[in-house]
């Protein structure tokens, strides 16, 4: 940790500064409570009876702990199936993306591609495309691919393939490759390794930290994404977030009790939360390093 920021130990001796400091601490504590309290409330509401979850004024702790509502939350929605779908969506999304963008980044950064500047512009310009605005044409493209005319809607491919068009990840890898000394590849080539082997056995292992960052962000992204799968997939291959959206908002609300809804929300929050607590350092570094991507 740093020794000091704006306020030094010496400043702290002045009452006005000390008061300001205490006020900032209190404000920050208030902010932290405002962030954490609602989350605790969700988790604890899952243990309450429906009547208690709806009571006014809302209490934080349940008067009795009912674990059975969590079991009901788990069984009310085919969790195992939808979590399986989410993992399948995530794996395909990640594998295809990593293969495609590492190959391209490697080619642009290390190999001698003709028209290199043109290709870089071709990818770089896509960073300016605001994602959601293309919702309609993206949907229509998946409905009928150019030239082939194939309809991908309702298949996993509809989610996997467009996910690989990640200009952000491509440039993250590109700048990483540029930073690796060229001698490393030259040496391998002299030893007679093919370009593909150099990529596979030297490059890919080196990029592990970048790929780890991409995987962590990719997981949070896929886990959160409920809207796009709702449009392009069908019930059998929905991820968990979409299934929860549909269970709470679209099917008969009376069927799922409020306390059980809170239980469901807690359950879908656990995996990304666990990942976050576990890889906290990576994630914070990743955001700082890459600018944006929350």
């Amino acid at each position: 940790m740093r020794g000091r920021s704006i306020i030094s130990d010496f400043d702290m001796k002045r009452p006005a500064v000390k008061l300001g400091y205490v006020l900032s601490v209190l404000s920050l504590v208030a902010v932290a409570i405002f962030m954490i309290y609602p989350l605790l409330w969700v988790v604890l509401n899952g243990f309450k009876t429906e009547k208690e979850a709806l009571q006014f004024p809302p209490a934080l702790l349940p008067s009795e702990w009912h674990f059975s509502y969590y079991i009901e939350a788990w069984t009310s929605l085919n969790f195992a199936k939808y979590m399986g779908n989410t993992l399948l969506l995530f794996s395909g999304f990640m594998i295809i993306k990593i293969i495609i963008i590492t190959l391209a980044a490697y080619s642009l950064a290390v190999l001698q591609v003709p028209l290199k500047k043109g290709f870089i512009l071709y990818f770089l310009a896509t960073l300016m495309v605001p994602g959601m605005v293309l919702m309609i044409p993206n949907y229509l493209t998946l409905q009928s691919l150019p030239i082939l005319g194939t309809n991908l809607l309702g298949t996993y491919w509809a989610y996997w393939l467009p996910g690989a068009a990640d200009g952000f990840g491509l440039f993250l890898l590109y700048s990483f490759f540029l930073g690796i000394p060229k001698d490393l590849f030259e040496a391998a080539r002299i030893d007679g390794a093919s370009e593909f082997r150099v990529y596979w056995q030297i490059m890919l292992p080196l990029t592990k930290p970048v790929i780890a960052t991409l995987i962590i962000f990719g997981f949070t992204y896929v886990w959160k994404d409920f809207f796009w799968p709702l449009l392009i997939l069908k019930n059998e291959n929905w991820p968990i977030a979409t299934a929860v959206y549909s269970a709470i908002y679209k099917t008969n609300m009376g069927r799922v009790g409020v306390n059980v809804q809170f239980g469901i929300l807690t359950l879908i929050t656990i995996p990304p939360m666990a990942l976050f607590l576990f890889f906290q350092r990576y994630i914070i570094q990743g955001i700082t390093f890459s600018g944006i991507k929350g």
Binding site: M35, I36, T220, F226, P272, I284
Partner: peptide, 10 residues
Amino acid sequence: YIPAVLPGIA
């Protein structure tokens, strides 16, 4: 930072 990792639907 925590809410940034939570699913929007939650």
